[in-house]
Write a protein that binds this DNA or RNA. Structure first.
Lengths: 252, 252
DNA sequence: GCATGGATTTGACTTAAGTCAACGACCCGC
DNA sequence: GCGGGTCGTTGACTTAAGTCAAATCCATGC
């Protein structure tokens, strides 16, 4: 996880080869002049782990895409109960064309770099470049599927299944790891969330998260090395514990 | 709730003035020749309350929009646990361009009429008519917001708050009702779901749903007349019980 | 009217997860 | 090496919601 302490542009070279808005997210099929337009518009912002990117209700005059690091979308009730409603991983898109305030708190859970575009010109470009809108529709539909899968988890799974599901999802999102799961080999993952954030994501308390992790460890489903590093000796076993059928989950 | 028993086209006059795909959902801004294209492509299907429209995993070669009635999207675990992940009300869109199997069970909970389009020509038209894709993106973003609001409900609300939230949402979705809520007048709603379906939507058991409805009745928050008809004497009181801040919920 | 069956309610009891509180592990600055 | 703070674990107890089992309600057909 690379260290990027300031909150400014130009820490990343202007020819940002990995900028996901350009290469993976929005503009995968654009021709070069459109790429150039995007290039002119974009700027970068970085955040340290724990910093808030934006508060729900604040004015949000940009859309963005995660370059490195992880952020969460959180909803809060007046009495303080909190639910994480989305994880933002590299290449994920944030922000809604056609709305000018944030609907959720966005928080960096690791050090984070985002690639931003001012909303107005982005929207104009969406009109003139249909590919972008189409790509955005695809991504939004994927997010909707992920949200619905998560609704099943929140509404129907036990605490143990929730923890197993979370680990399975984190493993699957990691390309190098997912090759190993297919090969039936042991898998190593790094949890990008504190126990408290896991609890907020899974609709549990942090004590329950801790107890269920201990239980999965006791039962040999996972091994912990330190607080964040997990070894999964048998990924299929983890999937059984998650309550998903063998190949259902393709979340977040 | 109008009775439409068969499962066929042409029960609705071919000049279907209320077809939501044409008028409200997808094509709100189309010019007349595009309307004509859509007119050529569409057909209708009706279902009785309780019938299944399509099973998760089945081939789905159409997209559709609800004309009248209500349907649910349900996810099921192998052991039979079920979670409703979406309500489809009139004008809501179903189906995903770019995928050819259904991701969820779709079930009619009341008698239902849907307006369908074969997927292939619809997709072609999306490419040639950017407005449609843009409208679809907007609708998908609204659904995503609704799903995320529901995640907060599933993960953090008590059974009593869940029931109150459901009633508030049903009331708000009804235009004639929502005028009355603003005027501070008593509100009447008809529950479009059985107790079991409410339980599946709220992540509860049907016994808990029943008990909490009784409790809200006992406490004067609602009055029941029969099993489905609800009177809400004080809508703000119901909102307090729902745990939402005064104006947060704008859900499915 | 009366039997039938599905939907709903209610009661008695159980249990998974939450709450409150103490304790342990680790990191950082001095 | 020594506090002090954050994060995580564990234990003892409570509670909201689930489970199992009986009623009750009500629409329907005979």
């Amino acid at each position: 996880m690379q260290k990027t302490a300031t909150l400014d542009k130009d820490i990343i070279p202007s020819d940002c080869g990995d900028c996901p808005i350009r290469h993976r997210a929005v503009c995968a099929r654009c021709e070069s002049d459109e790429l150039h337009q995007l290039e002119e518009m974009k700027y970068y912002r970085s955040f340290e782990a724990g910093q808030t990117v934006i508060w729900s209700g604040d004015r949000m005059d940009f859309v963005a895409s995660v370059v490195t690091g992880i952020a969460t979308l959180t909803q809060t009730m007046e009495d303080g109960r909190r639910q994480i409603v989305g994880l933002l991983l590299p290449s994920d898109f944030v922000g809604r064309p056609g709305r000018d305030t944030a609907a959720y708190d966005i928080t960096a859970t690791t050090d984070l770099v985002m690639c931003c575009f001012r909303k107005k010109p982005f929207e104009e470009m969406m009109v003139s470049t249909p590919h972008i809108g189409q790509r955005l529709l695809e991504m939004t539909l994927d997010e909707l599927d992920a949200a619905r899968e998560w609704m099943l988890l929140l509404g129907r799974k036990t605490a143990r299944e929730k923890i197993a599901s979370l680990m399975a999802i984190i493993a699957r999102r990691d390309a190098t790891v997912s090759a190993r799961t297919k090969a039936g080999r042991p898998v190593q993952i790094e949890l990008p969330l504190t126990r408290e954030a896991m609890a907020e994501y899974l609709g549990l308390t942090l004590e329950t998260v801790s107890r269920q992790i201990s239980a999965l460890k006791r039962d040999g489903v996972i091994e912990m090395h330190g607080k964040r590093h997990v070894t999964i000796p048998d990924f299929d076993r983890l999937l059984e514990e998650s309550g998903d059928d063998s190949d259902g989950g393709f979340l977040v």
